[in-house]
């Protein structure tokens, strides 16, 4: 009975959603057209950033990104708080089966290149697809590989907190420097350089590097907390 009610109401909802979006149409210029042109031309002419999504995320809507990073921080803190009781010590974590010699050597070989790839992705976030969130996630997958392979591999929690706080403080202080010298939060204070070069876009590169470190530290902390859960 419950399923029938749910199916009927979902059918009505789905029909009207399809109706609305077919009315908008696919691949046609639409309601954000003026805003889009403004963002594209500003990103090209005044900021000299080639990846427009990065320009929007870090500069035009940089305050949103600060909130987003705060939400991620809050999630990792909440996870640590909710799962606080009963923690395994390093080395006595329960694993289904121990990793074989091939996996151990392969993980040791792959780990530095995974971290390097992550660093590349967040350093070049304003030139090519990618950025702080993606690069940070790639680095966290490297730590996940190491934690899954070696059962006594440990990440220093103090060091994670240190990196995370430093990156957050860097983000906020760049914003405050922009506020006190140019009059608005996260305003660009550095020279913008030339398009499609590494040193372009002013503060965007620095902010994305800070975001990359912060995301990598938070995700590694989340993985570490969940893996060392006692059941």
């Amino acid at each position: 009975m419950k399923k029938v009610i749910v199916l009927i109401s979902l059918g009505i909802l789905g029909f009207y959603l399809i109706d609305i979006f077919l009315g908008i149409g696919f691949g046609v210029p639409h309601f954000t057209n003026g805003v889009k042109d403004l963002y594209l031309s500003n990103s090209k002419d005044t900021l000299k950033v080639s990846n427009v999504v990065t320009a929007i995320v870090v500069n035009f809507r940089g305050f949103d990104t600060l909130g987003e990073v705060t939400v991620l921080f809050l999630a990792s803190t909440a996870l640590g708080g909710i799962l606080y009781k009963k923690r395994h010590h390093v080395g006595e974590r329960s694993v289904l089966f121990p990793a074989s010699q091939v996996v151990m050597s392969g993980a040791k070989l792959l780990f530095p290149s995974i971290v390097l790839l992550g660093a590349y992705v967040f350093i070049h976030g304003h030139l090519s697809p990618g950025g702080g969130f993606q690069g940070g996630t790639i680095i966290a997958t490297g730590f996940l590989l190491m934690l899954l392979t070696y059962r006594n591999y440990s990440v220093s929690h103090n060091r994670l907190v240190y990196f995370e706080s430093l990156a957050g403080i860097l983000f906020v202080s760049i914003g405050l420097v922009g506020y006190f010298s140019k009059g608005s939060f996260l305003e660009n204070v550095l020279p913008v350089g030339n398009m499609n070069e590494l040193f372009s876009g002013g503060v965007i590169g620095i902010i994305y590097i800070a975001v990359g470190f912060k995301v990598a530290a938070e995700l590694t902390g989340i993985i570490y907390t969940v893996l060392h859960e006692k059941d």
Binding site: L40, S43, V52, V53, V57, E68, N196
Partner: peptide, 29 residues
């Protein structure tokens, strides 16, 4: 929506970058 070398003058055929930026936020949330 990336002005990579050779694409600098294609501004009027670029897709809308705003939903992409919003989705980047939404994925993290």
């Amino acid at each position: 929506p990336i002005f990579s070398p050779g694409n600098e003058d294609k501004m009027n055929i670029m897709v809308d970058p705003i939903p992409q930026a919003l989705v980047l936020t939404a994925i993290v949330i």
